[in-house]
Design a protein around this nucleic acid. Structure first.
Lengths: 215, 215, 215, 215
DNA sequence: CTCTAAACGAGACGGTACGTCCAGTCTTCGG
DNA sequence: CCGAAGACTGGACGTACCGTCTCGTTTAGAG
């Protein structure tokens, strides 16, 4: 409900009369329009043309700021805080991780799921964009789970070396994979399996010893 | 180079003269054209129009068989055995898994990587298609790793319960996630990390005990 | 309503089972389908494809018998007696002619009007077809008005030379022109004008003398 | 030969470089392309696609201005003055009329004949278009013959009431009918028959008296 | 407080591809 | 072996967007 929150601040119906929007005001209007389009028709059907029309501006004003659909959408998500997740803090590692996975799973079942799929497909074309997308996606999980782990370390639940290990992000990585392969919603049973059968055993076990053979 | 292997069997340049292709012959020609397009321009730039032109037929003949780009590409991959991986058999679990991951990683660095990304993005739109894609993708890893595990079980390296555990496919799942998030090629160091730091500890450890609390 | 009169004689729904229709039976089915299409969608939108589908057969079966849409429609009209007009016989020339024009005008306001327009447009392409169409169109007027005139000659209303004069068909020619230029329905006032202001003065006046100058 | 007259003014071969054509310039280019197509392949084979390609523009630019083939062709004819006829002025009614009919007959034997046939078939579908066509066709005859008649009235050859009578346009109406029914070229003998046997007797005779019975 | 340069809105432009429909031709296979 | 049924090649349909561009207008900010 991006734009429905502030109808009073909407621009007048016809901008040929009245003051013309510029700079940040216009940028905001375009991003809002993008969010509306994303929720209504989804990422795949979002076009620059429709976004411009919805924002009551011209395509040039959009292209001047974002050279591709993907970049526009990434920015719109940032504005909409669409991919924000709360930081669980139950005092126990297992509950924290499970809460995080559930939040992520809920996001994936919203329009954000479509968006994530779509953006992943465009990462090949533009390395810069790829970096942007990774940052976005990472805040939905990896960076959060690190904080969760740090607290567990402070509580003594988890040993410090885990924080820099590949094991740290296995839970969110597996959830992401599950979503991409099987779609949303992800069954809660799957989440508990990931936590209890895979993740907790990994982060609670002692440090692995390096393999005998390098290769 | 799908079609370049057999120029002698290629259809004549102009089908207005000469016998008209039908049924399987035509179907094969279309799929070959699809493979050629995939390798030349990639999945994102593949269009029904170009495929039809390249196969020297009309769009209708293509749409009669495949109602969408994605379905066509899935079938073409099947024909081209693009996603086939060999079954490693070194007599040792670690080497087998590492060999599999390396094969998968190589595939992901070929046009198949693009295709995989693109198809994942279209899974939302069509559940039937989603199932097809899952089957395709699963043969590139999950089904193979199960065989590898079974052999390890026979050798006594791994306990049988692992075969039905979520742990079984963690290696390929993490690799897939790594590719989707960070692109190809996947550093060999990452593969060994996945194997030594995550996968082997998981499948070689004793069975997890169920959590104390259900939720 | 060509086909609605005899649903009992309709072919079974699926001809892949059951005996195939051949020869006259199939021919009749195609012509019926053509009439149905003509009344439903009109001449302009009639296609060989739809006719074949409606007759539950293939296009080749249609093309084997009629090499063009126009020829098919001409035959269908013949079957449907669409262009038939009654022969007025009131005992008076003016009333006969007026009755004929009114009949023709009514026909022109039915689907036949569309058909006539359409066929006239295709006469250029095929001289054989042109001849067919002329015959069809001529029975709706010229040939009938000659009979009317013959009776008037017998009654002594009209002099015999008129029968072989260009004047004989002026009434129907003008009506046809009026329809083609201004569409149907043709106002009754126009019909009486044609009769009283043009046609009767022409056929009731004495024979014209040849012009003084040849050119 | 619409476009062949001015190769020097032709647009550059590739409009992707250089300034884009807009407005009237582009409109003119499209109409020229239409005229060229009309003379080369005729009305029936004229397609929006070929016109756009020939004018080196996109289909959208054509559709934006003309929503149908017929409207485009009508405008192109207007530009090409294809249906223009000279105004004969010999000082004698018979010679004037004959000259007009011969001009019209010549036009009908040119591509304009095809065009006229084709457009007549499309009048049913679109009343607005029908009006446009009528205007076009009317300038090729009816409006001209009225001027001829006016002059004859001034010379005393013809009585004034003829100008507002249906008789005035009988010559051109019959010629048009002759063309549509029997095609072009119309034999010169037919033209003289229309003039000497039908038209002159009609316009030179005294005013008709209204019929005794209204119906 | 002008005057200029940039940004804006609107939408036309030259293209590409869409998915559908149809024209005619050719192949297959049933009767 | 004929012919019915239907798949084939080819191409036009009218629409939607792409990313660029032009046009006139509005606005900010420099002088």
């Amino acid at each position: 409900m991006p734009s429905s929150t502030g109808p009073a601040t909407e621009p007048p119906a016809d901008h040929r009369k009245g003051p013309r929007r510029r700079g940040e005001e216009l940028e905001g209007a375009i991003l809002l329009a993008t969010l509306d389009e994303l929720t209504e028709v989804g990422y795949a059907a979002l076009t620059m043309e429709r976004v411009a029309a919805r924002a009551r501006t011209g395509k040039a004003a959009v292209y001047r700021r974002w050279s591709s659909r993907a970049q526009l959408v990434v920015d719109a998500c940032r504005l909409g805080k669409i991919s924000e997740v709360g930081l669980p803090d139950t005092g126990e590692l297992r509950a924290d991780v499970l809460a995080l996975l559930r939040q992520m799973s809920a996001k994936m079942d919203s329009p954000l799921g479509d968006i994530m799929r779509g953006l992943l497909g465009e990462m090949t074309r533009d390395p810069e964009l790829a970096e942007l997308i990774r940052e976005r996606v990472h805040t939905v999980g990896p960076s959060t789970i690190l904080i969760i782990l740090e607290r567990a370390v402070e509580r003594g639940e988890v040993e410090p070396w885990v924080l820099t290990s590949r094991r740290a992000s296995v839970a969110t990585d597996l959830l992401r994979n599950q979503f991409l392969m099987f779609g949303a919603p992800v069954a809660d049973e799957v989440l508990t399996e990931i936590v209890d059968d895979v993740y907790l055993p990994l982060v609670l076990s002692p440090a692995p010893k390096p393999p005998d053979k390098a290769d």
